[in-house]
Design a protein around this nucleic acid. Sequence first.
DNA 1: GTCTATAATTCGATAGAC
DNA 2: GTCTATCGAATTATAGAC
Lengths: 189, 189
Amino acid sequence: MTDRPRVRRSDATRTAILEAARERFAADGYDRATIRAIAADAGIDPSMVMRYYGNKEGLFAAAVAVDLGLPGLSELPRDTVGPAVAGHFLDLWEGNEVLTALVRVGAASQAGAERIQGVFREQLLPVAHRICPDPEQVPARAALVASQLLGLALTRYVLRIPPAVDLTREEIVAWLGPTLQRYLTAPAP
Amino acid sequence: MTDRPRVRRSDATRTAILEAARERFAADGYDRATIRAIAADAGIDPSMVMRYYGNKEGLFAAAVAVDLGLPGLSELPRDTVGPAVAGHFLDLWEGNEVLTALVRVGAASQAGAERIQGVFREQLLPVAHRICPDPEQVPARAALVASQLLGLALTRYVLRIPPAVDLTREEIVAWLGPTLQRYLTAPAP
DNA sequence: GTCTATAATTCGATAGAC
DNA sequence: GTCTATCGAATTATAGAC
């Protein structure tokens, strides 16, 4: 009977809230990104945010749900996986504020740090297991990969150190590619 | 006449405040590290912090004044500078909360990010100029070095991703040494 | 579903007694 | 130099009208 398409008005509002939240968390960090400011950006009332997401932590959790889209990478030829990973992550970072928000909040709060630990454990580790030779070394190798990728993101997108911002995509892939390749596939030193 | 040693009582208080501030900023980040909590840790009254450092920003600036002690590294043989840099920074991070506080606040606030930019410009760049061959490439190479060093610090000391925490000193020097060596001295790719 | 009004905290900063 | 008391502002979160 009343099963028409079900395009609730609130869906647009929810999307607007999440988008504004991502921008604010990425730009200001967790504490300074106030619900009031996010609601103002989204053009709605602050109390709506509470209604939809319960509290600030729930809003953050919904805003930074992230899919790295990594599984496809494990199909690539093993001897060029380093540059492929570098390029893939550059695309992710350039086109999306979620990751900047995630790092910024991860560095600032325990809850944010645990969320990044979760992404590492559930998305990066499994793929590393399909790429690396010795299973026993996978966690250490994945941690090294994460350190270089997150370090570039930190210097380039969060701290915005000028020479890191000025690097071109080609330069980054050329410099980081061999590093990641070694961390993933080279014999342990 | 009254030029006795000048050991003011307040010196001990100042030191206690700065030490407590470093711990709090490192553990909680800028916003959550309240003046009240810092004063409580130092065993003094919150108003003393204001008296000595003017405001919270002044306190932070005094607490994270940092000397990386880098110049000595430029005297080392050029072909083993990578592992030397890795080991030097590991010692710095392990023995001092200043750097953790700096990264945590740098990721969370603009003022903190600018402070790290200053450290990069005034302490890392000059040393890189004495190590790298081509002066024109120095900023980019230094930025790559910073990305790997800060990335390890982020994953190991701030986010505390378990496999990054579990890495031994020897493993880190062995893995990061060649990376830094290449960023600093290898021909551009 | 949306908004007004406000409760309940908490923080940085100030004024002033001792 | 040190502490008490407090102000003013900003925040999350709630209650309830429409």
